[in-house]
Amino acid sequence: MEIFEIVTYFVLLLLVSTAVRVVTTSNVIHAAISLVFTLALTSVLFLLLSTEFVALVLVLVYIGAVIVLFLFGIMITRAPLGKNAELDNDKNKKLGAAIAGSIFFLFSYILVNGFDGEVIITSGSSTELLGEILLSRFVFPFELVSFVLLAALIGGITLARKDEALIDEDQV
């Protein structure tokens, strides 16, 4: 077994264990921190596949921005810190585990048989090339994404805004 494969399997094992930790812990902060590790390991995985741009984006956007926002959100909204018993739902634990397990085995059986160690893409992606095709071949979906983001932004702000603003405007 090559050193590369050993590293990959090690990273994958860690990745699965931190991902499980995200959903099983009953402490919101622990879940967020576990998510940081999950994303960091995912970005390592992308580095191993020599797609350095995706790895960088994961670190910058997800770990750098999204998770930090999560943590700020938890702190600002006075959500209960520490262990929260409500997050545990013992009633459906067994059923959930059974369904998740069966889906896991079904998917892994199909995927292992379907791809079977076949190497599909041999070269990594260069950041330069990615930037070029993003603004030529894929410029249309690229522009569309900006509409999705703008809609989410405007709607999110409107829903989160305090309603007094509406009343004030009326009186003006």
Partner: peptide
């Protein structure tokens, strides 16, 4: 890619509007 973004663009505003 285009069809996925189209589906998302069609449904994302609806999440927000249903909570209007």
């Amino acid at each position: 890619l285009t069809i996925f973004i189209g589906i998302e663009l069609a449904s994302t505003p609806m999440f927000l509007l249903s909570g209007w």
